[in-house]
């Protein structure tokens, strides 16, 4: 098990990570959720021994790895947010290189390369130079490199940034299968709520360098168990309408984006007459509205007062 204890990191006068505590048990997928600048990448960098913390400790099986990081490095694979590959090499050459620096025996490495290429769905194009790959293929290879030496813990830092939905689905399924088949623990950071909901058993929500909520999906959603989320679609955006909504005491977590508005309201509260009268007052045409159970996004909004992708 990896444990992070009171981990902090200061860059000059800025506190990027502030007293973070979390743990990852073998075989589970843990989500680290937060907007850009929340401190996820810095936490990941300390967790993967790339930078040393200002304060706190990282334990592997209850042993500190700060002074001797090689124990953790041996069981760790990291998928960086960037495409950390040599663009002028083929997929196989990249895998061969990154496998060889893990000091894998040649025969073992060649077998693993074949397996990994199949797992990431690139078995038919191992001789194409990476620079000629699509964004999704590069992302998959980026993951493949990290799991080549069969690490027990795989840290994935926003592995689906900037790719098409098809490749994204492929990656999510690959991650899920990998976890189920190999019992590899995965720490998955993202600001895409639906990815974390789909993959993770447990979730840590970070904002401004701190963990603001943690637990299973259900536990976190229970924060808003007494409320419903309402999605409203308007014909066009109206500032006056949004301002009037903000003045309504029964509504909270109001998030307006062009013609779409989301808010939470206590279960059983009859908000419809109020909504219709405000539409009429502001001359706004209501296209549709939908009442849903709260999502992680709503919880995040509730906890931080801002949307996750801001």
């Amino acid at each position: 098990m990896i444990e992070v204890v009171n981990l902090s990191k200061n860059f000059k006068k800025v506190t990027a990570v502030d007293q973070v505590n979390l743990y990852i048990e073998p075989g589970e997928i843990v989500g680290l959720l937060g907007p850009n600048g929340a401190g996820k990448s810095t936490t990941i960098a300390m967790l993967s021994t790339l930078i040393s913390p200002t304060e706190g400790d990282v334990l592997l099986n209850q042993k500190s790895i700060l002074k001797n990081p090689s124990d953790l490095r041996g069981v760790l694979g990291v998928v960086p947010q960037e495409i950390a590959l040599y663009q002028d090499l083929t997929a196989r050459e990249n895998l061969q290189f990154f496998g060889s620096i893990q000091k894998m025996a040649k025969q073992v490495l060649n077998k693993r390369i074949d397996i990994v290429l199949e797992q990431i769905g690139l078995q038919n194009e191992p001789k194409k130079l990476v620079k000629h790959y699509s964004g999704g293929m590069k992302r998959r290879l980026n993951i493949g490199v990290a799991m080549l030496h069969e690490p027990k813990y795989l840290i994935m830092d926003e592995p689906t940034v900037g790719i098409d939905p098809q490749s994204r689905n492929h990656i999510l399924k690959t991650v899920k299968t990998l976890n189920e088949n190999s019992n590899m623990a995965i720490i998955y950071t993202s600001h895409y709520m639906e990815e974390v909901e789909f993959l993770c058993n447990r979730i840590y929500i970070m904002d401004k360098g701190r963990i603001i909520a943690s637990g299973t999906k259900e536990e976190i959603k229970a924060v808003l168990s007494s409320e419903n989320t309402v999605h409203v679609k308007l014909e066009y955006h109206s500032k006056g309408f949004v301002n009037d909504l903000l003045e309504q005491p029964m509504l909270s977590n109001i998030n307006a984006k062009e013609g779409e508005i989301t808010f939470t309201v206590a279960k059983g509260m009859d908000f419809l007459p109020m909504l219709l009268s405000l539409c009429e007052k502001n001359n706004v045409i209501l296209k549709s509205f939908q009442v849903e159970e709260p999502t992680l996004e709503d919880v995040f909004l509730h906890l931080t007062g801002r949307a996750l992708r801001n």
């Binding site: 993967s48 021994t49 790339l50 990081p69 490095r73 041996g74 760790l76 990291v78 960086p80 947010q81 960037e82 950390a84 590959l85 040599y86 990154f98 620096i101 893990q102 000091k103 490199v145 990290a146």
Partner: peptide, 10 residues
């Protein structure tokens, strides 16, 4: 970040 991969390698 290839350097990071090298750093945490064996």
């Amino acid at each position: 970040r290839i350097w990071d991969r090298l750093t945490i390698s064996a």
